[in-house]
Write a protein that binds this DNA or RNA. Sequence first.
DNA 1: ATCAATCATAATTTATAAATTTTATGTTTC
DNA 2: GAAACATAAAATTTATAAATTATGATTGAT
Lengths: 239, 239
Amino acid sequence: MDAVIEAEGQGPSTQASHVYDRLREDLLSGRLAPSRKLQMRFLTEAYQTGQTPLREALNRLTADGLVEVREQRGFYVKDISRAELAELTKTRCWVEALALRESMKAATPQWEERLVLAQHRLSRAPRSLSATTFEDNPEWERLHRIYHRVLIDNCGSQSLIAFCGQLADQLYRYRRLSIRKAFPSRAVGDEHAAIVQAVLNADVDGAITRLTAHYQRTADVILQDETIFPELKANGGEG
Amino acid sequence: MDAVIEAEGQGPSTQASHVYDRLREDLLSGRLAPSRKLQMRFLTEAYQTGQTPLREALNRLTADGLVEVREQRGFYVKDISRAELAELTKTRCWVEALALRESMKAATPQWEERLVLAQHRLSRAPRSLSATTFEDNPEWERLHRIYHRVLIDNCGSQSLIAFCGQLADQLYRYRRLSIRKAFPSRAVGDEHAAIVQAVLNADVDGAITRLTAHYQRTADVILQDETIFPELKANGGEG
DNA sequence: ATCAATCATAATTTATAAATTTTATGTTTC
DNA sequence: GAAACATAAAATTTATAAATTATGATTGAT
């Protein structure tokens, strides 16, 4: 009942699963930079493992949209672009609106309680580890992830939930890449609370509006971050 | 401009891609039966290739939802169930309704022409190779796939299109597994034409209603097929 | 003399074969 | 009859070999 996210299946006892987790973390954090080539020799030395488990992990990560594979030419960290960020955000808004609507249609007291709990825990975790400069707090990120997961959890479709998870991961990477800027100016905590309030009020349209606005605002901040997007033309961001 | 589906990327020149295609076909056709164990020794002999390309193919197929992997216990053909069929269908209706709506919002003459053409070609292909008994026509299946792809093609989200493709594949397998029954009784051609007509009339709700009814009818036929679902209780199929 | 094309070399990805580790099975013992 | 051990089967991993692509130099032409 506690591990809301980790409940995917078996405990990872193979080396492939282990290196998958490590690679995933390094991709999401940006330690492995976008469009970087992932050479086998480098990977085997850096992660101290053989080619087979690495290949397995890289293939799974390709399915997750974090790695790109070119035939006979090796693996690459998926590149980023304003256009992709915009498209992913648009898609997430569409799909999570759908999932949230269905979750609310099927609402139960148990689900509402899980949601209230997830939001409460998130609100108690500090956004940044440091008070002066922004320093990413892994625990906040974990609770944030769970919160958004619970929101759509009740929709009744495992495949839809999984798809939302993929989109969340891909967008999370953008957020991490852009996170140095101190944007705790936004009161994201209030936004999370307002969404839950709308859900509890059975206000479907209100909940969806707040949720999609939440995602759109996050994307807008990142889209303006000139440090992660090299080319800076004065267009709307649609490539 | 011709290959609407195949436009995924590079030509498959590796053995891994080749065996992926062959495995995929055998999974979709049912030659590899649901829940069957996929032993390495059997696979290497049957497909005349090594373990590395096979592992790579199996991992990709796992992401496609056609294969299941259990840690330290090998690969299995994904099992089928009434519950999963119902859930996949439900999800496909939701997501394709969304994609169709957005496609129609962004409609262009070029897209409408592609749609008309796809429907026309489909209407000209014979549903069955034999006139008396039902015999699956691969060309019809190919054109059918393209038709449904074009319908949602214009939504402006690659990831959403890819997700729809995954759902389509998984449901296609159910259809193939159940296809022996002669159900050309249904006038699916008329259904396809009616959807296109609604699209051309800019009748969003009408198009969506027809499309989802189309999918639901297909699922209902398969759900009643006792030959592929062993347990037959007199419940609705949820569980 | 400069540029393009071709050939040879080096680096890297992909595939095969062998070894290791883990799980499943059947027998024996308590 | 249940638990523990030994054996067998199978998945996972490492190590080695083959095929492909990238790189750089040399040759020929403009």
